[in-house]
Simulated assay, not measured.
Amino acid sequence: MKKKLAVVFVLLAGTLWGCIGIFVRRYNAMGLSSMQTVAIRMVIAAVLFALFVLIYKRSLFKIHLKDIWIFLGSGVISVGLFTYCYFSSIELSSLSVAAVLLYTAPAFVMLFSLIFFKEKMTVMKGISLILAVLGCAMTTGVIGGNLTVTLAGFLFGLGSGICYALYSIFSRFALDRGYEPFTITLYTFLFSAVFCLCVTDIRPVAGVVFADFGSVGYAVLFALVSCVLPYVFYTLGLKYIKSSTASIIATVEPVMATVVGAVVFAEPLAVPFGYLGVGLVFLSVVLINIRFKAKTKS
């Protein structure tokens, strides 16, 4: 039952992450850079989550100094640099292309998991990974479409995939040391927010966020939908399923990003490859869950 719930959590996380483009495009249109948009997301998310933990359970603030490198890694690399690369990729290409480059991540997660945690590369994982990547490529128009990608857009997209993959790895290190998912999320946000404040000119950001009450509300919604809720869901999922498996299930994100691009920004969905790709992504999730059930029964 816990594994089934974990799958739902990861699916919810991927769905919410797939909506990021709506917010990013708006802030880009208002003249903010990718890093300034990252700062809005991470600083507000850190404040909101710290207040939540303060009220909910203060003991979750406790960490060991020797483990601080884990949270520095998850905060600066896996969230700060990841978000910068992903937002830059969105700015330089379509939402769908940025999303499919991001989802080179499952391959990197599997590689890192083999190296650091000795996770086995099963046949079912391999098939699910191939279907997920193929489905993403079809959904986004990389296969069967006429989309082009600049070198900068490609490199930022690939960088987002590597950084995103490392979140699963850093989180697994923290979970194996006995830290609660909320503690991992809290310090990931805090270190990411500090990093953003150190490298960003915050004055234009403050002007946009605090322009009026509606702007403040939109910024809070941005932090909740694109950061707080999905990272909480994903980290909770990692507590009960392997990093490599979670990364495959989360490939629902590029599907959602493509749907958002088509519905909100009128970015075309390739026919029939786009719809076939959506089906392949969901098939990969089904197959990985069939594997769960088989292992549970055995």
Rank of each mutant, 00 (worst) to 15 (best):
V38C: 09
I40S: 08
R41C: 09
M42K: 06
A45P: 03
A45I: 03
A45Q: 08
A45D: 05
L48K: 10
L51M: 12
Y56K: 11
Y56P: 04
R58S: 08
S59E: 14
S59V: 08
S59D: 10
S59L: 01
L60I: 06
L60T: 00
F61I: 04
F61K: 01
H64M: 11
L65Q: 15
K66M: 10
D67I: 13
I68F: 04
I68N: 01
W69H: 13
L72M: 14
G75I: 04
G75Q: 11
I77Y: 12
L81G: 02
L81Y: 07
F82E: 01
F82L: 07
F82Y: 14
F82N: 02
F82S: 00
T83F: 10
C85L: 03
C85V: 00
F87T: 04
F87R: 00
S88D: 13
S88K: 11
S89K: 11
I90L: 05
E91H: 12
L92Q: 11
L92C: 11
S94H: 08
S94I: 05
L95F: 12
L95G: 02
S96L: 06
S96P: 05
S96Q: 10
V97K: 02
A98K: 09
A98C: 08
A99H: 01
A99R: 05
A99P: 09
